[in-house]
């Protein structure tokens, strides 16, 4: 945002004039553009985050809401979290959920994007249809997946039984063994279109002449993919993975609808646990602490992303 303001003001102002009478007005005008945004950020971003941070150092219970008494307890909430047996499980589940979802979403998305790069009859329509999972509200797809996964009546078990791939129905959502995997599979289905769309548009920017030249030099399809597609797609891949990571870290609705974090915390992630602590056990201090942990994790990855962007831009600058 800052760079934008600087360039516009730089071009509109004649270079030799140090201070024009209109300068003050112009500055005011600039502020009026920035102010609503700043106000919005302060109110709806800074305030909640700071409040959440403060809350995590307080003993914040039901009584705090009415009487307002919420004593400062230092790191007690964080200590209670780390010593909670659910903590390790929630962290591990969050990592597995994020890594599993991301890996398959990306690989499937990239495969489909490359596939749709060719033109064939109905390719446009099919690509449009692939967007469907993304367009559906998560509550709807979650409810449908609940039905698909049902142990006795679900279409998935019926299919597997019919094909004689399994002899007993699999308790997809009702066993601690399968619940997390089932949630990951559902989330992969939801995330593929996002990867497909971004990667596909990235592919459009790769000049076709490169492929033609490579083909003339005798490069096979795999070599063309490895030597041309992947390197030229790198900035787009970075964006897709980073956004995907942040989206997946904070997935809440899908798990909540499918399993509610259960059974027996088998699919509990940091988000569902934070919700359970705050709104089921009314321990808002600890709930806030889990929330902060998530913010920190997301922040670390966001910084890594910003760094990688800077590197990409500077290396591009050197090349140009």
């Amino acid at each position: 945002m800052t760079t934008n303001t600087r360039t516009t003001s730089g071009t509109s102002r004649p270079r030799h004039a140090h201070r024009k009478p209109g300068g003050h007005r112009e500055r005011l005008a600039q502020w009026t553009f920035v102010l609503p945004m700043m106000l919005f950020l302060l109110l709806f971003f800074c305030y909640p985050v700071l409040r959440n941070l403060a809350m995590s150092f307080q003993e914040w219970t039901v009584a705090s809401f009415y009487e307002g008494g919420s004593p400062f307890v230092g790191l007690d909430n964080y200590i209670a979290l780390v010593t909670d047996p659910i903590f390790g499980r929630a962290v591990l589940n969050t990592a597995l959920f994020t890594a599993g979802s991301l890996l398959f979403q990306f690989v499937i998305g990239l495969g489909l994007a490359v596939f749709f790069q060719r033109r064939f009859p109905l390719s446009g329509t099919l690509r449009g249809l692939m967007l469907l999972p993304w367009l559906l509200p998560l509550v709807v797809s979650g409810a449908v997946f609940r039905w698909i996964y049902d142990e006795g009546f679900g279409v998935l078990n019926q299919l597997l039984l019919g094909l004689h791939l399994i002899s007993d129905p699999i308790p997809w959502l009702s066993s601690t063994q399968y619940a997390l995997t089932s949630a990951i599979i559902a989330n992969i289905w939801v995330g593929v279109p996002f990867n497909l769309v971004i990667l596909h548009s990235g592919l459009q920017a790769v000049p076709a002449s490169l492929y033609e030249a490579a083909a003339l030099d005798g490069a096979g399809p795999w070599q063309r993919f490895r030597m041309i597609t992947l390197p030229l797609l790198r900035p787009v891949i970075a964006i897709v993975l980073m956004l995907g990571l942040i989206y997946t870290l904070k997935v809440f609705d899908m798990i909540m609808i499918l399993t509610g974090g259960g059974p027996a915390n088998a699919s509990e992630t940091l988000t569902t646990w934070s919700f359970a602590l705050s709104f089921e056990e009314f321990d808002f201090g600890q709930g806030a602490a889990v929330g902060n942990l998530l913010i920190v994790i997301a922040l670390v990855f966001a910084l890594l992303y910003l760094r990688s962007i800077r590197n990409t831009f500077s290396s591009q600058g050197e090349r140009g």
Partner: peptide, 13 residues
């Protein structure tokens, strides 16, 4: 009841 198969394992959901 669930272990013996008299009730569905899905009762947990």
């Amino acid at each position: 009841l669930v272990e013996e198969g008299l009730a569905s394992r899905s009762v947990v959901n």
